[in-house]
């Protein structure tokens, strides 16, 4: 009985996959034309890149909740890891250290570029934040960043900044219209402010998810 269970699970999953595929092939054409709606309103969104417009303007609450979820996940990880002694950045191979020292500033530069270009071309807060986090992970692997037992005040502000700025902007435009409907004249500037703080927070949170859960090794 116990032996047979995985076989049954695999068979049922395969059946589900086949049913999904059959349903997809059977779908009627689109009833709603979303790309057209996005293109028609792009001029009023404050940015020229459709995906950034969707993320920060048309469906801004998705991104608002997303940064909240990220922060919540970090709280979960921080609550779970054993408080261990901070510091103890063990030095790695000198070559790796030098490489990390050279690469980290370049990665920060790339993150800044991705953030800026996001208004008009592929890029934006998520990718920029990911590159920042990768720089943090690289520095940690090279032994140049210490692990930390508990984030200090400055770090806490950085972790929460994205959510705080986003909520503040959302509250500020509430008087103008509905939630996260920016005045078209200010939209571009507001989106840049939100994205800059989001980049910093996403980068710090993603790096922290790695730094907090990796322990000090002898």
């Amino acid at each position: 009985m116990k032996r047979a269970l995985p076989v049954v699970i695999v068979a049922l999953a395969a059946l589900l996959g086949a049913a999904l595929a059959a349903a997809m092939l059977d779908l009627p054409p689109h009833a709603v034309r979303l790309p057209g709606a996005v293109a028609a309103n792009l001029a009023a969104s404050g940015v020229a890149h459709p995906i950034t417009a969707v993320l920060l303007n048309f469906r801004g609450y998705d991104t608002l909740l997303e940064i909240a979820v990220l922060l919540l996940a970090l709280f979960g990880v921080l609550a779970l890891v054993k408080p261990h002694a901070a510091g103890a950045a063990h030095p790695a191979h000198p070559l790796l250290q030098t490489l990390a020292r050279l690469l980290a500033p370049l990665m920060v530069l790339v993150a800044g570029y991705l953030l800026w270009i996001g208004a008009s071309a592929p890029g934006g807060a998520f990718q920029a934040g990911a590159v920042l986090a990768a720089a943090g992970v690289l520095l940690r692997l090279a032994g140049l960043l210490p692990t930390w037992a508990a984030p200090n005040l400055l770090l806490r502000v950085g972790l929460a900044l994205g959510l705080l700025v986003f909520v503040a902007v959302a509250a500020a435009v509430l008087g103008h219209a509905t939630l996260l409907t920016y005045p078209p004249a200010l939209a571009g500037g507001l989106i840049l402010v939100i994205e800059a703080s989001l980049t910093l927070s996403i980068g710090l949170i993603l790096a922290a998810l790695y730094l907090a859960s990796t322990e000090v090794r002898p």
Binding site: P35, F58, E66, L70, A73, G129, L209
Partner: peptide, 30 residues
Amino acid sequence: RDGSVDPVPQAMVLTGIVVAIAATALALAL
């Protein structure tokens, strides 16, 4: 599926990828 590029699901997936790594990190800590 009709061959045109749709930015709305793309933006949702971009959000989803970031949430997925947060969930992975939390699951690993657990």
